[in-house]
Simulated assay, not measured.
Amino acid sequence: MLFQVEMKVNLPSDMPESQATEIKATEKAYSQELQRYGKWRHLWRVAGSYANVSIFDVKDNTELQDIISRLPLFPYMEISVKPLCRHPSSIRDDDS
């Protein structure tokens, strides 16, 4: 199943820079691992904000919840999820 996931990060202003740097590095490593495994298919930054729009390819809602809740930045995120399905006019074979 494909899901569009929008994530906006809101780190506390009083979070020490060293802690923020560590969390971001751990997040980057985890997200890149998920991309290599094909679970996190697309990742786009939203210009002008600390946010992204991503496409996940997972078995079901439960797997998506598990992946998202393991993100190191999860406690600091506003997240919206939209399930996607193949459009009948799409010419791509890999978008299901």
Rank of each mutant, 00 (worst) to 15 (best):
residue 22 E to A: 03
residue 58 V to A: 02
residue 25 A to W: 00
residue 36 R to I: 06
residue 42 H to A: 15
residue 68 I to V: 09
residue 24 K to W: 07
residue 65 Q to P: 09
residue 12 P to L: 06
residue 41 R to P: 03
residue 62 T to G: 11
residue 67 I to A: 02
residue 54 S to P: 11
residue 44 W to S: 09
residue 16 P to H: 11
residue 44 W to I: 08
residue 37 Y to G: 03
residue 45 R to S: 08
residue 10 N to W: 12
residue 41 R to N: 12
residue 42 H to S: 14
residue 57 D to A: 14
residue 69 S to K: 05
residue 15 M to Y: 12
residue 21 T to Y: 08
residue 23 I to V: 06
residue 45 R to I: 09
residue 35 Q to E: 12
residue 20 A to Y: 02
residue 34 L to K: 01
residue 6 E to F: 11
residue 28 K to Y: 08
residue 18 S to H: 13
residue 16 P to I: 10
residue 36 R to L: 08
residue 33 E to W: 03
residue 8 K to I: 14
residue 9 V to S: 03
residue 37 Y to M: 10
residue 48 G to E: 01
residue 51 A to Y: 01
residue 28 K to C: 05
residue 21 T to K: 10
residue 14 D to S: 15
residue 65 Q to N: 15
residue 40 W to R: 05
residue 24 K to N: 06
residue 8 K to G: 04
residue 32 Q to Y: 07
residue 22 E to V: 01
residue 7 M to S: 02
residue 49 S to F: 02
residue 61 N to V: 13
residue 64 L to R: 00
residue 64 L to C: 03
residue 47 A to T: 07
residue 12 P to C: 06
residue 62 T to L: 12
residue 41 R to T: 15
residue 65 Q to S: 15
residue 53 V to N: 02
residue 65 Q to F: 13
residue 42 H to F: 13
residue 57 D to K: 10
residue 11 L to N: 04
residue 60 D to M: 08
residue 17 E to H: 13
residue 7 M to A: 03
residue 68 I to G: 00
residue 46 V to L: 07
residue 9 V to Y: 02
residue 40 W to C: 04
residue 48 G to R: 01
residue 58 V to Y: 00
residue 18 S to D: 15
residue 23 I to G: 00
residue 16 P to G: 11
residue 54 S to G: 13
residue 30 Y to E: 03
residue 42 H to P: 04
residue 65 Q to C: 15
residue 60 D to P: 06
residue 52 N to W: 05
residue 7 M to R: 02
residue 6 E to I: 09
residue 8 K to T: 14
residue 45 R to E: 11
residue 49 S to N: 04
residue 56 F to D: 00
residue 43 L to R: 12
residue 64 L to D: 00
residue 42 H to I: 12
residue 57 D to E: 15
residue 12 P to W: 07
residue 43 L to S: 14
residue 17 E to P: 11
residue 17 E to S: 14
residue 56 F to M: 06
residue 11 L to F: 11
residue 7 M to F: 02
residue 60 D to R: 04
residue 9 V to E: 01
residue 57 D to S: 14
residue 36 R to N: 10
residue 18 S to A: 15
residue 6 E to C: 10
residue 29 A to P: 03
residue 46 V to W: 04
residue 67 I to M: 07
residue 36 R to T: 12
residue 10 N to M: 14
residue 43 L to H: 13
residue 67 I to H: 02
residue 39 K to C: 06
residue 16 P to V: 11
residue 14 D to V: 13
residue 14 D to A: 14
residue 20 A to Q: 08
residue 56 F to S: 00
residue 6 E to T: 11
residue 30 Y to F: 10
residue 64 L to M: 04
residue 49 S to T: 04
residue 21 T to R: 11
residue 9 V to G: 02
residue 59 K to I: 11
residue 30 Y to N: 00
residue 37 Y to S: 09
residue 46 V to T: 08
residue 31 S to W: 04
residue 27 E to P: 00
residue 7 M to W: 00
residue 66 D to K: 08
residue 28 K to W: 05
residue 20 A to G: 11
residue 21 T to E: 10
residue 47 A to M: 08
residue 37 Y to F: 09
residue 67 I to Q: 02
residue 17 E to R: 14
residue 30 Y to I: 03
residue 56 F to C: 04
residue 35 Q to I: 07
residue 67 I to E: 02
residue 27 E to G: 00
residue 52 N to A: 09
